[in-house]
Design a protein around this nucleic acid. Sequence first.
DNA 1: CGGCATCCGGGAAGATACTG
DNA 2: CAGTATCTTCCCGGATGCCG
Lengths: 227, 227
Amino acid sequence: MKKRFYDDACGAAHALELVGDRWALLVIRELLLGPKRFSDLRTGLPGISANVLTQRLEDLEAKAVVVRRKLPPPASAWVYELTPWGLEAEEIVKVIGRWAARSPSHDPSLPISVSSTVMSMRTMFAPERAKDMTGKIGFRLGREEFVATLAKGRLTIGRGAADEADVVVEGDQQALAGAIYGGVPLAKLEKAGALNVKGDRALFERYIRLFPLPEKAPDAKAFRAPE
Amino acid sequence: MKKRFYDDACGAAHALELVGDRWALLVIRELLLGPKRFSDLRTGLPGISANVLTQRLEDLEAKAVVVRRKLPPPASAWVYELTPWGLEAEEIVKVIGRWAARSPSHDPSLPISVSSTVMSMRTMFAPERAKDMTGKIGFRLGREEFVATLAKGRLTIGRGAADEADVVVEGDQQALAGAIYGGVPLAKLEKAGALNVKGDRALFERYIRLFPLPEKAPDAKAFRAPE
DNA sequence: CGGCATCCGGGAAGATACTG
DNA sequence: CAGTATCTTCCCGGATGCCG
């Protein structure tokens, strides 16, 4: 009937049955930092249509990657949340993201979601650059707040109250990504009103250099055979 | 690629543009152990049709993941080979394979390709079980030969002449997978003529216990809300 | 507003047959 | 052996509309 299976015992093939559908892994990416509602998922996935999102969520729920849960009153809204095993897919998102960062065809100027921006810090963090750094950096991106904690050369970052931090960065994620990955000077972003830094500014200046991009791989032209 | 971009600067999203098409990652899996010809790729990917394979190979070549190369005479055949960066996608295949091994819906009784079987050993190898083991295991699976080398708690496995090893295992990959992951007794497989072990048999008996499967994650029923 | 069903058009994947 | 060519099937994406 539905001969669209890979029919392959290989773990990788089974993984593709689970999360190989279009958008599926990006839905997981959006949930890695915590539960979200349907419309917040759509915000983070510009271009997905409601019916496709519905179907992906149903599939992922049936496969025990995602759970649909009702928040207690007064919120009383439905949220989608990764199961503990679904949360383990974080490694997948990080590894493929790190691999694709070397792609010769990657265009970093495209729009990026809040969750992606935060996840990119988890992904690209270079511990050897943070050996002697300590402190907390708070982020206020749109209506979401996150806290990054540096200690003993390790970085933890997740949802949390931004104002508990040594420095609070407020603005939009696109500008933050520009500062971290695009080499855009902080002063310029502040002047443009895209970012606002309050508190230990020097800490944040050092922080944004903790996420080096890997060298680009050669593109297809480099492999044109002489034949 | 196609007109259906994700339009997302996130590395994971870009990775899906590169290898998110159906079959693409499995094509890469088949090439991880070295160059292959078109028809050998088809053998390892039961179910893929020729035109889809053609298209994937063209796509992957355009994206500098794969190179198409002509073997020198007298072979003079076309082969497909991963670029150095394409080879780095091994991490992706291993991570998603390891993640999917915990899936409650994984069916290990499906057919499995020779490359998958060899790659599964790279993926599931547990170094802590091999601390004091040393030796070489040769495999003759179909017309392909591989050698696994154990030294200092590390495993390397790839194409190589099987008869240089301390023990040579001959037969089909399905039976080998059954011995390693299915707990099928070796004697039974030999009696059935599916596997043939020559040489240091005790080494191979220990070898097949180096690849433990992870615990299954709870399935969707476990998350049914009390309502 | 949030979530889901339905209809439709376009295009990708599958099956089969065929060619150099 | 290494792919094309063609036809069919079905998934994806957009629009609309229903229901709480």
